[in-house]
Amino acid sequence: MIERLVRSPVGLVSLAFLLGLCLLAAFAPWLAPNDPMELSLADRFAGRSAKYPLGADHLGRCVLSRLLWGARPSLGAAALVGALTAVLGFVIGATAGYARGRIDEALMRTVDFVLAFPTLLFAFAIVGFLGPGLDNAVIAIVAVHWAHHARTVRALTLTVGMQEYISAARLLALRSIAVLLRHMLPNVAPVVVVVTTLDAGWILLQLSAFSFLGLGVQAPTPEWGMMVFEARTHFRTNPTLMIYPGTAIFATVVALNLLGDALSGASEEVAQSQA
């Protein structure tokens, strides 16, 4: 799959962009020219300068530093949500597909119930009951999103479960957990990776919307959605304050979606060549 991805220039560029972004986020403490939280009322709305490469915001905080630091909660939370949904979706989907019968029925009716709702509103409501905050926003998005993954994984598990080596493993009286992890997981994992990548952009958008609405990251922590929120009252006079964080979200989501497309294209090619 990786060799095929390398042959897709769009996927490769997206991957490079995202890796670069992760590096920027990881090294934010060393790269940022200023403290992202430091107020300097004398420098309110300062233009671009050597001290503030992208200017300063309404409280005189360095925009570039806030963008770099802001990448951490944005990317970190999105990665966390992606990983948690993938794991939860795999565990529940694979259990349902492998166990079949009543367990399958019960789990899939739960999935139907969760999917019957508009995802985002349901997530808002969960934050409503738990209270605003990034941790609760992560819980809420995972709580509504795992069902999509579970359904995909279950369908896949049903197909893989018909293969002879799974019957062989069952005949050898291997424990279910061992069959699932040793034999099922390696076959399901590539699809889970593709689906998770395709989802990651959506997740990042939802998280930024949560922060924008005041339901996710709380001020004064820098985060991209939060930065758009803080810039909103000044956008008539200082539109650039909003352009920077918005562009950051937009570019990251485009890169994630393109990478997801390239990955799913590559995995389809692999599937076809194996068939």
Partner: peptide, 9 residues
């Protein structure tokens, strides 16, 4: 890929 709130502004 556009955040809805950003598109609005």
């Amino acid at each position: 890929a556009l955040p809805g709130f950003w598109l609005g502004y």
